[in-house]
């Protein structure tokens, strides 16, 4: 059943906050994958949240909320990524960052993560989405539903992407 039919404005607003709180990681990871620049990333996060708010009344709870959020976040990121972010308008004035990290933990794995993020940034927009969902351990069926492709095609594409990643790491290590 469509969520909007049964929800008043306040309930919708509460649902919005609840969804963001529970699934903030999805937005953050997608934004981080598509935007290297911190200021642009904050704009992208804001745009994602606006689109989630605008689409919330259409949310059909027969579908997994994570699938719905990944679709919005990736669609906004791919569209946003191709815009000149400095020409954006109609933005809300940001009182502070949309989302921030309290304390960024530093670890020895950080370098490897940076390396992985660098390799991901070399992929094209659609492959980036695939690799992100793959690293998030989504099943091929879930990825297919988010992307709008067949499970077989996802398998083929992921195979090639994994091979590329493997080669890049091998090259660095050697």
């Amino acid at each position: 059943m469509v969520f909007g039919i049964m929800t008043s404005g306040t309930a919708l607003s509460q649902k919005f906050h609840q969804i963001l709180e529970q699934h903030k990681g999805i937005l953050f990871k997608v934004a981080r994958t598509y935007c290297q620049n911190e200021a642009d990333r904050q704009d992208l996060l804001q745009e994602m949240m606006i689109q989630i708010w605008k689409s919330l009344h259409r949310y059909n709870d027969n579908f997994a909320i994570t699938t719905w959020m990944y679709r919005i976040a990736l669609n906004v990121a791919i569209s946003f990524y191709r815009k000149n972010t400095h020409q954006q308008n109609a933005r809300l004035p940001l009182t502070d960052e949309m989302m921030h990290i309290q304390e960024e933990a530093s670890s020895e794995k950080q370098d490897q993560l940076n390396l992985l993020e660098q390799f991901i940034s070399e992929f094209n927009d659609l492959d980036k989405a695939l690799v992100l969902l793959y690293l998030e351990d989504k099943s091929h069926a879930e990825i297919a539903e988010i992307m709008g492709l067949s499970v077989t095609n996802i398998g083929t594409k992921l195979g090639r992407i994994k091979e590329k990643l493997k080669k890049r790491f091998l090259l660095i290590n050697s």
Binding site: L12, S13, F16, H17, L20, E21, K24, G25, F28, K29, Q46, M49, I50, W53, L92, L94, T95, D96, E97, M98, M99, H100, I101, Q102, E103, E104, A105, S107, K109, Q110, L113
Partner: peptide, 20 residues
């Protein structure tokens, strides 16, 4: 790496309220 980040992420309530 991202689980750690996710735990320390904070959504800015003021900004999300503005969106609603």
């Amino acid at each position: 790496a991202h689980t750690k980040l996710e735990d320390s992420l904070q959504v800015n309530r003021k900004n999300t309220e503005d969106i609603t």
